[in-house]
Design a binder for these strands. Structure first.
Lengths: 109, 109
DNA sequence: ATTATTTATCGTAATATTGCGATAATGGGA
DNA sequence: TCCCATTATCGCAATATTACGATAAATAAT
């Protein structure tokens, strides 16, 4: 127990859930918004921008990266992070498919 | 430690994260899809549909309800669940605002 | 070479989540 | 009234997440 029963669901359901989970944290939402706002990428600026420790920010970046939503490029001594366009749009599409599959019919409870 | 530092973020970030978290689980995605597919609401059918125990389904329903994404109406001895249209559309809008705030500029890393 | 800067990783503590059996609570029908 | 069906809640065990200090690893500058 304690573990999600992955085998009970489709691949699509598990993947969508994993990507949504990556976004479903206020720190990671803030990081994404900051990356978008700064357009070109930042790195340790996130540490001063949000009120979190460096280790914590690094860990959140790792999670976003692990589902492919951001990418990091080494740039001298620092690392430049930014949104990964393909995964970003792909997730947007999948999320909207879910939302749009609901048609309000007022035949409900 | 172990707790999210809620005070470090805006209300909007915390709310969006909470609603996304409710969706970010394969069982809850499956429940939402089933509710949408059945249009009018079901209840304990979810238990036989997914391979989870009744207590588990009930708990997932509670979480979806707690962020307002579904509603339940008592109907005799059973309870009829369905999507709550306002919250559903509101979340879709907020999610798309986040996604659309990113403009690809290939000035990135 | 040494030092400073930047980021990743390790280890740990606190808390949250997931899943389920057991049990309560509610209302319908015999 | 007594059972049956349905759903919620409690309590628990296993695991996951969150946050951070300490430390390592890598590169730039002196």
């Amino acid at each position: 127990m304690g573990t999600t029963k992955v085998e009970a669901y489709t691949e699509a359901q598990n993947l969508l859930a994993a990507q949504l989970k990556a976004i479903a944290h206020p720190a990671r939402i803030a990081i994404l918004q900051e990356l978008i706002k700064a357009n070109a990428c930042i790195c340790g600026d996130l540490v001063s921008e949000l009120g979190l420790a460096q280790a914590t920010i690094s860990q959140h970046l790792k999670e976003l990266k692990s589902v492919g939503l951001i990418q990091g490029t080494i740039e001298g001594t620092s690392i430049c992070y930014c949104i990964e366009p393909k995964a970003w749009h792909s997730l947007q599409k999948k999320v909207n498919e879910l939302f749009n599959s609901y048609k309000e019919l007022n035949t409900c409870c």
